[in-house]
Design a protein around this nucleic acid. Structure first.
Lengths: 332, 332
DNA sequence: CTGAAAGCGCTAACAA
DNA sequence: TTGTTAGCGCTTTCAG
């Protein structure tokens, strides 16, 4: 298998009648090259379609201009905003984003981490915090800047941009109570962060003198269908449920549809709160009350932290809680 | 800035009392190393947390074990299945997937292509076909295997796994006609592929002796909100519209919600057809009739083609039309 | 402003 | 089975 078009800096140098070093400078520090030479080299580059080999550059300069992000699920609305913002911010600074999917499975996660570390990215963005001790060790040992996101922990690996899931649970419970609901239930994904929201919710529910909220767990990723089925299940077991906190807007949409199919009036007979504030939330009928997390800010901040580090500067406030907000619309 | 933990094969070799080559072999061809040495080297690797430098490996062996995918929008439900399948299939073969977002903008696309080609991936998967002549040239010149997807063209750059958008338009128009609808309208994203579906639809509509279908264009990405607004606009201009073909399921969901808000019975007074067969389609009330594209097959096939090429084999049938299917449910 | 030498970390090819 | 040599393509460093 022959490489069809294997141009190197040397080829370009020869064709332009200069040294390889000058080609390299033309590409990376054009201000240090005389205009005449610059034009000549550029002409050859354009004519040949030469694209320098980034692996060689990275190897020599130990700057890959690459940032890796680890997502539990590759695509799906939840981290959409974060990833978009991350990608945009990095792109502006000349960095490429590489995305890896961890699944919700821990053993695959270590393999993924290995694949990532091999490429020596300038930074790694994790959605969620890293629990596997082996993963932590690898990350720490690699010396690569790491930003954990979408969660809080007293023991971050390195940097952190997140918020408290427990506090979300508390706030939503309190919000529902303040709206007059006394028999709330939970329909929730079965993952670690969702579980902490549930704990927060139940804690507050105890504080307010309510019964423990019935909880219906659904497998991740959450879908509209599991929202419908979830409401059906909850209502079957606890007929006087008067409100539901869903762990995603999709789930909430399912609940809304199922409620409608059953002739249950929202928000009068059933309050519904989602999580995520997807763009569909505002367009629903009734518009969905939901918890908004500023994913854009998470992504942008993570990008900024990593670029700072990659350029050798230090980050002054490497651990931030960006909080969240309950967007009150019409469904609760 | 010192590299905190810069182990190399040489360090590991010294610690294990062997040569660097033996460390390399332990990592890549363990069967060619004696059990005793293997164990010793592995112990050192585990103890130090050594992860080999993939850039160096890639440079030397010109195999990056990397595949790049270009998506118009980074995340979003449309290519979800394709990307997931692509990632899974590549992962099984030991390849990493890198994702780049082109936006719907052509100038950024060339820059992205450049960033991708620099890394010398073993393959590039494009969603949609490459129109920019400059992009084609770059791709061709790079000699990297390319798979274009989600579309058909008589002049692919290299390999192709797609289907005909025009034919989708024709089929949906015919389907609606056969269901008795005589005044269909289109609510569609304003992009190239969507436009070809519209042309197909209008062509068939002429053939069937229908008036040209009113068309309402919405900006990409499509949202539930623009579906609602779209139906309102269509109805305002063309009150006796009796069916709508939406260019995504999200749009269709918006149409369903708007129809409900207006007391329009679906499918009796208004037929609704979506595109994508998202998992929510089946769970809606009424369940959504939609066009299903086998994204999993696209992703898997693309992965297979690229791996074949990367391993030096040739692909026997490098251009496939995987077709599509209208899933008849309750909304039309 | 330009060039020559050296080497980043790894592995293909050959030798022992 | 193991080791030695060389060099992938680039850029850092140092001279001119």
């Amino acid at each position: 298998m022959k490489k069809p078009q294997g141009f190197t800096v040397h080829d370009i140098a020869r064709l332009a009648g200069v040294s390889a070093m000058t080609v390299s400078r033309t590409l990376n520090h054009p201000e240090k090259v005389s205009p005449a030479v610059l034009a000549r080299v550029r002409e050859v580059v354009a004519r040949t379609g030469f694209v320098p080999n980034g692996m060689a550059r990275g190897l020599r300069s130990s700057k890959a201009r690459l940032v890796a992000a680890v997502l539990p699920t590759l695509v799906g609305p939840v981290f959409q905003e974060t990833v978009r913002a991350l990608n945009e911010a990095l792109d502006e600074q000349g960095y490429q984003l590489m995305i890896g999917q961890s699944g919700y499975d821990a053993s695959r996660e270590d393999a993924l981490l290995d694949a990532i570390i091999r490429r020596r990215p300038d930074g790694i963005v994790l959605t969620g915090i890293m629990h596997s001790p082996e993963g932590r060790r690898q990350l720490l040992a690699s010396g690569i800047p790491v930003v954990e996101t979408w969660d809080l922990t007293p023991t971050p690996i390195d940097m952190l941009v997140g918020f408290s899931h427990e506090r979300i649970g508390q706030s939503v419970c309190h919000f529902l109570y303040s709206r007059g609901y006394r028999h709330p239930a939970l329909i929730s994904a079965d993952d670690d962060r969702a579980r902490r929201r549930i704990e927060g919710f139940q804690g507050m529910s105890r504080t307010l003198g309510l019964d423990a909220a019935p909880t219906h767990l659904v497998p991740a990723p959450t879908t509209l269908g599991s929202g419908r089925a979830g409401l059906a299940a909850v209502l079957a077991a606890h007929p006087h449920t008067d409100a539901v906190f869903c762990s995603s807007d999709m789930l909430a949409l399912g609940v809304l549809i199922e409620a409608q199919a059953r002739g249950l009036a929202v928000p009068r007979q059933l309050g519904v709160v989602g999580l995520g504030d997807l763009d569909l939330a505002a367009s629903l009928q009734p518009a969905l009350t939901t918890v908004r997390i500023d994913g854009t800010r998470i992504g942008r901040t993570a990008a900024q932290y990593i670029v700072e580090r990659a350029e050798g500067r230090s980050v002054s406030e490497p651990i931030v809680d960006i909080g969240f907000e309950i967007i009150e619309r019409a469904s609760a």
